[in-house]
Write a protein that binds this DNA or RNA. Structure first.
Lengths: 230, 230
DNA sequence: TAATGCGTCATTGTATACAACGCAACCCGT
DNA sequence: ACGGGTTGCGTTGTATACAATGACGCATTA
């Protein structure tokens, strides 16, 4: 799910600093996302400390944060396990996303200003350019654009906590991006959704924007169940 | 806000253990909720360690958790400040609650079973008994009942993540429970909301339940702005 | 006098040593 | 052979010592 309804990587600065704890956080997080450790794997603090080049103290802090992110499961006196995702988890997560992101779209409709609409439109152009290139779709170029699109919507909506919640929910199943893939049809539909959302915002129609966004997310959910058609 | 739309204290076991970090967590949390430290106050790790009777290590862990809860604001190299709540914060938080809890009510409507409805009804009875006593309302007796009511709804809905999100959102402004108070009219309305939600669940009408819950939360928000009428 | 640079101190961040806990293997008794 | 207790080891939890960072005050200078 390198595309829209599935991506939305957190771009906030949590862990952007140069503290040892932040380095450990980034390192472990990247490792999990790259499936360096399979779901269910037990992470030992000492080992992580050596790998990261810091002591156990910042590693412990990183583990707590990753647990809060939902990437790990922490059991007292037993340590950290890489989280494994069930069907029910996916349903719950995408259900939450549908609720929250459609809310964002609705809010954004009543607050979007011309420059916002212009940037959203430009992002659509850029994404369509990548998809329409003819050859194999370069997901690594779509993902940041898509993240920016959804992030910008959150900014426009102007509800910090709502945005924070969404980022938290999206963070959880980030691992799965590697596995699932959008077919070309899925991608085309996603692009259309984006366009339609911008249109709805231009028309200042919150219900419209909200509905399309809900569809957008639920379509994203379906990619995990329905086989890739292409 | 000892009542329904404002309470819903987290009853999960986060911090229930006997580890030093958990004791520190509980201690500091209680202190903040009891206004032992005013909003904006700078909490020093050493001082907290001495007060709690543990070392700085578990105190640091507790501070990180409290920051994730939203009770503290953490700045790298500068430490922790007790969070101060603005009008915008309240609007955002109650907005989220309205969205999430109404979702829960809707889900619960399609999943509630007779024994659930019975327990919800019993909780309504108990709360009304406390309120209708005639004398001054004993908030300390309403709060746990109300928490149980909302918590049971979450259980019935059967969406763990949704419940987790709600608990997280409710946790944030928990400090304010001390300040705001429901008038007798507000309380009466709250009780009516509860009853109506149970009715909607009995009728298996998710839209109905969801709407009442949304009203319930927004009425709770208003208590913070409109002066107590009594 | 006001602005700037430096030094000191309080406070946070990190490393390391030690304690407590849990699991597993083993021994012993029945 | 099987069950219960026990010991040993690996891992997590906690305390403490040390390093690094930022804030405040003072002195120096234009």
């Amino acid at each position: 799910m390198a595309d829209s309804a599935g991506a939305l990587a957190p771009q906030w600065d949590s862990g952007g600093s140069n503290r040892a704890a932040d380095r450990a956080y980034r390192f472990i997080r990247e490792g999990i996302l790259a499936s360096r450790w399979p779901p269910g794997a037990h992470l030992r603090e000492q080992e992580l400390a050596e790998l990261t080049g810091v002591s156990r103290t910042p590693v412990r802090e990183a583990l707590r944060r990753l647990s809060a992110d939902g990437l790990l499961q922490l059991v007292p006196n037993l340590g950290a396990k890489v989280n494994a995702w069930t069907i029910q988890d996916l349903d719950e997560i995408f259900g939450l996303r549908a609720t929250l992101e459609s809310q964002v779209a609705g809010l954004a409709a009543s607050r979007a200003e011309p420059q916002h609409l212009a940037e959203l439109g430009a992002l659509c152009d850029a994404m369509e350019a990548v998809v329409g290139d003819g050859g194999a779709v370069d997901f690594s170029r779509i993902t940041p654009l898509n993240d920016r699109f959804h992030g910008l919507l959150i900014d426009i909506a102007g509800d910090r906590r709502l945005g924070q919640m969404i980022r938290q929910v999206v963070e959880m199943p980030l691992v799965l991006r590697t596995f699932a893939r959008y077919s070309r049809r899925d991608l085309a539909r996603s692009m259309n959704h984006h366009r339609e959302i911008v249109e709805a915002l231009t028309a200042r129609d919150g219900e419209w924007a909200s509905s399309v966004m809900r569809a957008h997310v639920r379509a994203g959910r379906a990619v995990f169940t329905v086989p890739k058609t292409e």
